[in-house]
Amino acid sequence: MLRYIVVRIAFGAVLLAVVCTFGFLLVFSGTERVALNILGQSASEADIAALNAKLGIDRPLLVQYQDWVGDAVRGDLGNAWTTTGTVTEILGRRLPVTLSIVVTAAFINALVSALLGITAAVRGGIADRLIQIVSVVGFSIPNFWLGLLLVVVFSLTLGWLPATGHVPITTSTLGWAVSVTLPVTALVLSGIASVSQQVRGAMIDALGQDWVRTLRARGVPEGSICYRHALRNALPAALTVLSVQFVALLGGAAVVEQIFAIPGLGELTVRSAIAGDVPVLMGVIVAMIIVVITVNTLIDLINAWANPKVRLT
């Protein structure tokens, strides 16, 4: 088991290094227009050259990369170009906001999908038909449109929930819950659509295995067969989609934070992308890939617990 954990973490480190390298080379190769963006279209050649020198982007790409890596391993991701403060500082402020939304969405997604998927697999009937409809609807309604519709209905028309703003969970739990209700709802629908389908399929698969017949033949109650045995065997497949969905949720946050004016990582990405704040974008990539690797490793570990065979490989 220990060896398995070490291997997973090593794999994550390699992925981090590879993604950072490719990310850097691509993001920092498009910096010609940055000075113009910052100084305005009428900036003189000399001013542009001076700013490029100040930002260090007049140097060869590989030299920039070397410096960036040297600083990054010490936890220094440089200074933002278009706002004040260091990238690490900005990320430290933004990441918890996004995580509080995305993690909540992931949990709700897991919970609802498990309920729907298991019911559809075990009982069939209405739940089964509902899941087919949800899978089409959830795929077809983009989160940004759903977000706008939710604002129109629940904020502008009914006035139940705020249209914008974010209350940090550390300030007020209830205030936070109220402020994230609509964003999380906008985020989870498409995730539920795909995860519940997978849970259903995995459960049907598990319930069709030979050992289910043998357990039934031995008089094991149906409840235990479904919720203890089949569910545990269905877990790896379900968790794998959930980890894919977590990545999708992070992407969805970029859009949804924009709609609800939430000061998170996604809103930061959009703003930095339009302004051309390359160090911040690079910081976002690093932060996201670390989050993704952490979540994937956690899910791998749960999988190893659920499926003893995994631990051997």
């Binding site: 993604v19 990405t269 390359v278 990539i285």
Partner: peptide, 15 residues
């Protein structure tokens, strides 16, 4: 598949 596609596209927007 490791990074959200929309984040990748946003990051490369300048390029």
């Amino acid at each position: 598949m490791a990074l959200p596609a929309i984040i990748v596209l946003l990051a490369f927007f300048q390029a």
